[in-house]
């Protein structure tokens, strides 16, 4: 694990865009927030972007809601909640410029249904925004972020997000939209600048989905995640005894399942895996701090040097 962790730290220090993906309910937002705090503490300027309509990253960072604006959450750490729908409308405004025409297009049923239904458009727009921030085209008052971390919406289909710009650039192969999609696709294909992190729990279905995601990523994108974070792991359990109560028996069994699923995961992924133990702490800034410490220790573990 030693070499893995050195490489991982170097990678995390270099990548300009990180996507955090994972099934619903695995604690992705907590891990995203903790990762952001970790990198900010290492001196990188971090912008967290959240697209889930149930805006909740701000609560985890003890910050007022973004409301669509970029808010400072801590030293070197900013947060923005984005509505992909809004981004697409902004794109129309920018490209069409003529006010009356813009209003007609935005209100037209073709536009509404097309942007809701057309595969890959929203994802491409979100990546496009992230790329522009990274290249320093954000608001002038804000320092250019060193890294943008995108908290992708809870989904078992992480590959769809990462493959979207390529899909769009193939369908719309000309014009400024096609060109933008192609540029974004090229950025996502650059292993020196873009990486992904998968969050899961050590249970059968989540691990199964991760293994399938890894396969899909390898085939479609020729890459693998930088890191898999396994959340909510039960602590090592005592040896079973005849007079164990229900709760202890449950603990023993859940720990066994965790261990079996961890093995299955490690057998299918040769990159770094970090386990985060279950904590008796509600989701919130305290838990983010604890998870952040855990990540920091895990990244520096076996390495000798910070």
């Amino acid at each position: 694990m030693g070499t893995d962790q050195t490489d991982l730290l170097a990678r995390l220090d270099q990548l300009q865009l990180l996507v955090v993906t994972g099934k619903g309910g695995v604690g992705k937002s907590t891990v995203t927030a903790a990762l952001g705090v970790h990198l900010a503490n290492r001196g990188r300027k971090v912008l967290l972007i959240e697209v889930d309509p149930r805006e909740n990253l701000h609560q985890l960072l003890d910050t007022p809601p973004s409301g669509g604006e970029i808010v400072e959450a801590a030293s070197n750490l900013w947060l923005q909640h984005i509505d992909p729908r809004q981004l697409l409308d902004d794109l129309v405004r920018e490209k069409l410029k003529v006010g009356a025409l813009v209003r007609k297009v935005l209100a037209s049923p073709v536009h509404l249904h097309f942007t809701e239904g057309a595969p890959g458009l929203k994802q491409t727009a979100v990546f496009g925004r992230a790329l522009r921030m990274v290249e320093g085209h954000g608001p002038k008052e804000l320092p250019r972020p060193d890294v943008v971390i995108l908290d992708a919406p809870a989904s078992g289909h992480g590959v769809a997000w990462m493959a979207a710009p390529q899909l769009v650039s193939e369908v719309i192969s000309s014009g400024p939209i096609g060109k933008m999609a192609a540029e974004i696709a090229a950025f996502l294909a650059d292993k020196e600048r873009f990486g992904s992190i998968v969050v899961t729990t050590a249970e059968e279905m989540p691990v199964q989905e991760v293994l399938e995601l890894l396969k899909a990523m390898a085939i479609r994108l020729d890459r693998q995640p930088e890191l898999v974070v396994v959340n909510s792991v039960y602590p090592p359990a005592p040896k079973p005894r005849a007079k164990d109560d229900d709760a202890t028996r449950l603990w023993i069994r859940r720990r066994q399942v965790n261990e079996a699923e961890l093995s299955r995961l490690v057998a299918g992924f040769d990159g770094p895996v970090v386990e985060i133990p279950l904590k008796p702490i509600d989701a919130g800034p305290l838990l983010v701090g604890v998870v952040g410490e855990h990540l920091t220790n895990a990244f520096e573990d076996n390495d000798g040097s910070p």
Partner: peptide, 26 residues
């Protein structure tokens, strides 16, 4: 739903038992 575990029933509750108790209460 995690089962209720009363730590007071245990002579020496480990950290794990306390965690389980917390999960049950939560």
């Amino acid at each position: 739903v995690h089962p209720i575990l009363d730590e007071n029933d245990l002579k020496k509750p480990s950290e794990g038992h306390r965690l389980l108790a917390w999960l049950g209460r939560r």
